[in-house]
Amino acid sequence: MRHTISLFVDNESGVLSRVAGLFSARGFNIESLNVAETMDPETSRITLVTEGDDFIISQIIKRFNNMVNVINVTDLTDEPRVEREMVLIRVEAKDKTRAEILRMADIFRAKVLDVGQKTYTLELTGDKEKVNAFIGLLLPLGIKEIARTGTVAMEREAKPSKKKGDKK
């Protein structure tokens, strides 16, 4: 099953490889990973999406809790949450497709970031399905390059996340 896991960690070198190491040690792939500083410059937030056996994911989360650099872990999978992802897409813009690309961008509320002789660069924010749908529509027109941030997520309400040391 697909899991979205949110971690608050010490903002220091090596933390990311500790987190990633738990997955690689079990031969698990991380589908997407997003890391950035929080309001507190000493803390980073990681949003991690992975596909895997629930039992093993629950083991991994317990191991996260054991890590000295991990301040807080929440498996958002079963929580009401908002999820967003941003993508930058460079798409071929030929005479006959230029208008259509802009029309689609408008429908999807994507922004045009860069206009060139041969390409448009678009920015789109949305959940994974919306991003995939947009990419799917642009694909026949010739996508030159894409860059995705991976999912970032938050619980819908400010309810307290699980503290370390709580029993399962």
Binding site: Q59, N65, N66, K167, K168
Partner: peptide, 8 residues
């Protein structure tokens, strides 16, 4: 004492 041993 180690939560990761529970249900492992």
């Amino acid at each position: 004492i180690d939560p990761s041993t529970i249900d492992k």
